[in-house]
């Protein structure tokens, strides 16, 4: 094991896959000379050269569309979006072209592209830069959506994403980039679509993913210590494909569920989870499914208030106490 940051874990995954497969290329705004807007790609240009690490103009529809076209011919582009928030200017390319081309061609084409970048609030950058589009993306059959919470998961999942033959959208988190975690040495692959029980418990299941995993673990520690409540934290890691079985197994054990997500509540990932849990584990539930989401408004700028708008350990704690009442 080595203790590295989430940022380094992603960088190592990129470097290893660039090394392994000459078809892998990294493209995006500022990924090369600038070392990445969040320094994720630092050092890659020096190591792999400008043919493999390509600085793009500010032209998301153009370069992502280009990456999709190249992937149809077997190149495996890993495209960086400086922020996932900018996906909206490339929406047509991402969700009409990448998501649909296999289907519309009757299965003749595959599109092994990865689009990665941060998708989170909490950094006081206002509504245009704080989108969490995993629900929007996952609404499109044909795509895969990954939201890693830890360094080890980020590395293992990104390597799998790059090897995947379907389009994979990989949503990182600027606040997590500096978080350190133990990452196994050597080849480390985590299959997409496999949830991870980050904490074992018996009284309440918190289903969550992304940075909310950290909030949930923090709240769970307090719940254990101060309230004698044992919480199981299930980290989905991948939104689509979805490991609902791990969620259901946990619900069967705890009989109570709280969904925690950094999403706006309307038609979110949590909405889908709540539907599936009630549909498939109705008899295991001792109470209604609870949910904690971002407060339903565009992302507020005001720094102390943004903390309150998003899920945080205190809000998770409160919601968990409600859920076990």
């Amino acid at each position: 094991m080595s203790l590295i940051t989430y940022r380094e874990a992603i960088r190592h995954a990129l470097a290893e896959e660039l090394e392994r497969d000459a078809n892998v290329v990294v493209l995006g705004e500022e990924v090369g000379q600038f070392h990445g807007a969040y320094k994720v790609t630092e050092g890659l240009l020096a190591k792999f050269g400008p043919n493999r690490i390509v600085d793009t103009p500010i032209s998301e529809a153009g370069f992502i569309g280009m990456g999709i076209g190249a992937s149809m011919l077997g190149v495996r582009p890993v495209m960086e979006l400086m922020f996932w928030s900018f996906y909206s200017v490339a929406f047509d390319q991402i969700l009409n072209n990448a998501a649909n081309v296999r289907y519309m061609s009757g299965g003749q084409i595959c599109c092994p592209i990865v689009i990665r970048g941060p998708a989170n609030g909490g950094t006081n950058v206002g509504a245009t830069h704080s989108h969490t589009p995993e629900n929007v993306l996952a609404n499109h059959p044909g795509v895969k959506v990954v939201v890693p919470a830890t360094a080890a998961d980020a590395k293992g999942l990104l390597k799998s994403a790059i090897r995947d033959n379907d389009p994979v959208f990989f949503l990182e988190n600027t606040i997590l980039y500096g978080e350190k975690g133990e990452v196994p040495e050597g080849e480390h692959l985590i299959p997409l679509g496999k949830a991870d029980v980050k904490r074992v418990g018996t009284d309440l299941t918190i289903v969550t993913y992304g940075r909310c995993v950290l909030h949930s673990l923090a709240a769970a520690a307090i719940l254990e210590k101060e309230h004698d409540i044992s919480v199981e934290v299930v980290d989905l890691r991948t939104i689509r494909p979805l490991d609902i079985d791990t969620v259901l197994a946990s619900v069967k054990k705890t009989n109570r569920v709280l969904i925690v997500e950094e999403q706006k509540p309307f038609a979110s990932v949590g909405s889908q989870l709540a539907f599936m849990i009630q549909r498939e584990a109705f008899d295991d539930l001792d109470g209604p499914i609870h949910r904690l989401a971002t407060i339903d408004a565009p992302a507020i700028y005001s720094p102390p208030v943004e903390v309150e708008q998003l899920p945080n350990p205190q809000r998770v704690l409160k919601a968990a106490l409600e859920a076990v009442k």
């Binding site: 529809a61 153009g62 370069f63 992502i64 569309g65 280009m66 990456g67 999709i68 076209g69 190249a70 992937s71 149809m72 011919l73 077997g74 190149v75 390319q93 072209n97």
Partner: peptide, 9 residues
């Protein structure tokens, strides 16, 4: 853009 991508490949 896909056409440009074919050329890129």
């Amino acid at each position: 853009p896909l056409g440009a991508g074919l050329a890129y490949a």
